[in-house]
């Protein structure tokens, strides 16, 4: 058995209406302790109204080496940005 506690990624929601944002990571023996530790480590200055923790191991990430095939193709498809539509005056500001 590993002597090191598992690593957890911490997400804090700063205000109602905003999304949780990744703020960092910490070690804890289980999820409940991870929440407590996150409270003590990441919300000392009144940063949050809600905390999520997830085991770092449970996050599947895209590989940096696949960056090209994954993301480059979209860089030339500017027509995917919704900036080519003429908005009728009556609609007003969107």
């Amino acid at each position: 058995m590993s002597k090191q506690w598992p690593l957890w990624e911490v997400f804090i929601r700063g205000q109602h209406g905003l999304s949780h944002r990744h703020v960092g990571s910490l070690h804890a023996p289980d999820a409940e302790m991870a929440i407590r530790n996150a409270r003590d480590v990441y919300t000392r200055r009144n940063e949050g109204v809600s905390i999520w923790v997830v085991k770092s191991l449970d996050i599947t990430a895209s590989a940096p080496s696949e960056k090209g095939p994954l993301f480059d193709p979209s860089s030339t498809k500017i027509y995917r940005h919704p900036s080519f539509f003429e908005i009728p005056k009556d609609v007003g500001h969107m």
């Binding site: 910490l26 070690h27 804890a28 407590r36 530790n37 003590d40 480590v41 000392r44």
Partner: peptide
């Protein structure tokens, strides 16, 4: 004993 406890 651990950083997290230290801060707590």
């Amino acid at each position: 004993p651990v950083l997290e406890e230290d801060i707590a």
